[in-house]
Design a protein around this nucleic acid. Structure first.
Lengths: 235, 235
DNA sequence: CTCGTTATCGTGTGATTGACGATAAGGCCA
DNA sequence: TGGCCTTATCGTCAATCACACGATAACGAG
């Protein structure tokens, strides 16, 4: 046995790799689920669309790095839900050398216009069904697929649909989130009953809104729980 | 802006970190949920119990590294369910220098006696409720907590309870898995109905066993689905 | 043959779901 | 002002599902 694979001994520099974070940022725009992509202006994959991201700095926690990159690309920061998605580290995923990337899933209200960062000529929201997987940089198509699957699953058993909404929102707004993410129509009456009866999911503010034209609707805020029981089911 | 935080440029060596995999390996022994720990025989944390794991080799995929470490510590390999849990990378989590660790969740049938690896004097199965979190090396207590939570959740909506069982098993064996992982008693009759009616969860082999003393039981094999609908609920 | 053990099938009650009717409460326009 | 469109919210009904538990089946031990 060589010293190299002697686990938990300090590794030499040839066993150290670049470590990055990549962000799968979703929002709802125009009743459609959209993803933030940046256009790369440096090789490799120059000109291709990619997930926003960057390398982890020496004194930075992984979550901090993700928040920093998110702020750099969107101007957003607090109020955005951020959770680890998965880590991608195939030896050849980056032609420049071995890179380990920790992907994060972010859910944002439709607030900020994206800002082009230092390494990207443009940043733009893309409706998820208009993204051409084949042209994406690195293994980002795979990461996006995983992020989509996670987001869709999370809506079922967590109150994270509200992460797409402003701090105060109506049941109809929340329903629009579910419909956009799942790509299916939901019955307004049954949806209303489910989410308002689900203990801890929503807390009414008392205020009403009539922004949507019809009868004024109750405004709600996110509740205190972080697991939905019973879940909101699709199909 | 320095070249250092210019995202997606090749990073200099001071921006490269050690990358490891750590394994949270569960099994059921004696109707209790057990976790594989190794006793460290080198600093830091010499003499403390830790998760098995080691550094990722240059040409190795992350999953490969996890499988290799699993084989080194347990002799097991195929037949064990292995999925990514999360990645831990706090700047100070390893006193020797910055280390990013990709934790994997493994579910194993009660088959192999653990084997002490090169870096550990002993490897041993521990009942999860006998583990003293305070004495564990690194941030492994946190990783174990996350692994436990994941395992408990996965039993609800995935057929992975069967990953704790031998290739052919009875409903009672499967129920024992659920009871051990969730730490609660389940009604044998309702459990039997749920799992046998859940489409694709179990496929009967036709053979029977009478190993448990009472009426002979049907043997089943894992079904083909990977998401349980409806889920098996606790409480 | 009886008893203890485990497996498996049924059954009844109460809760939940999904489809959909009914009503409430605003704005718009003649 | 009153019709009409829109959206919100409540109610109803049948089908389904959950859970608690009774009943029966099929073995081994004594």
């Amino acid at each position: 046995m060589t010293p190299m694979n002697r686990a938990k001994a300090t590794p030499p520099t040839n066993l150290r790799y670049a470590v990055a974070v990549d962000l799968v940022v979703f929002t709802i725009r125009d009743r459609r689920l959209c993803l933030l992509l940046v256009e790369r202006d440096i090789p490799p994959f120059q000109g291709a669309w990619a997930l926003p991201g960057g390398f982890v700095l020496p004194d930075e926690d992984l979550r901090e790095a993700a928040y920093r990159e998110l702020a750099e690309e969107t101007g957003l920061g607090s109020g955005v839900h951020l959770e680890q998605l998965a880590t991608y580290g195939a030896p050849t995923r980056d032609p420049r050398g071995r890179t380990i990337s920790i992907a994060w899933l972010a859910l944002s209200p439709d607030a900020a216009e994206p800002v082009a960062g230092s390494d990207a000529s443009r940043a733009q929201w893309w409706p998820v069904d208009h993204i051409d997987s084949a042209t994406l940089a690195f293994d980002h198509a795979r990461i996006i697929t995983d992020g989509l699957e996670r987001a869709r699953a999370k809506l079922e058993y967590s109150p994270l649909g509200a992460a797409f909404c402003p701090p105060e929102f109506t049941v109809a707004q929340l329903r629009a989130v579910y419909e956009a993410v799942w790509g299916q129509h939901l019955d307004p009456r049954n949806f209303h009953r489910k989410v308002t009866k689900s203990p801890g999911f929503l807390t009414p503010t008392g205020a009403m809104t009539n922004a949507d034209g019809g009868r004024p609707a109750q405004l709600y805020r996110r509740g205190v729980i972080d697991v939905l029981n019973p879940p909101i089911t699709r199909s």
